[in-house]
Amino acid sequence: MKQIIELNVNGETYELAIEPHRTLLEVLRENLSLFGTKKGCDEGTCGSCTVLIDGKPVLSCLTLALDARDKAITTIEGVAKDGVLDPVQKAFIDHGAIQCGFCTPGMIITAKSLLEKNPKPTEREIREAISGNLCRCTGYVKIIEAIKSVAESA
């Protein structure tokens, strides 16, 4: 049976009628048309569905939409502010860290949460932080360089 819930996504509040079996990933994409968050493996092993919930990176494919009530959700659409790219986004572009772009939203969300907690991570810490985000294209080198560059300029 559908339940009326409020979801707070990227600072906006949405009132939705959602059934218990819908995942947060599905609701973001299908109800809110926020297609930036990707459905990759849909079983928690690729990280392309990563969003921030109260600042922590979680997999939205394994989060029930009902469980995301009363929490601050941030998707990739909420990273740039008023059309101005976040330093992480700019670094990804400048360092060639984006090829097909599918892993990118999840990578950027994870990188942002790392830098918020730890503004000057070591390379090892960066690698550990993104170890749940798979990339089939880049081989990770440029992604790590991009995140490192933001860390170094902090």
């Binding site: 922590k56 994870t110 749940g132």
Partner: peptide
Amino acid sequence: VASPHLRNS
């Protein structure tokens, strides 16, 4: 266990 994301849930 698993990955950082999975350890958060």
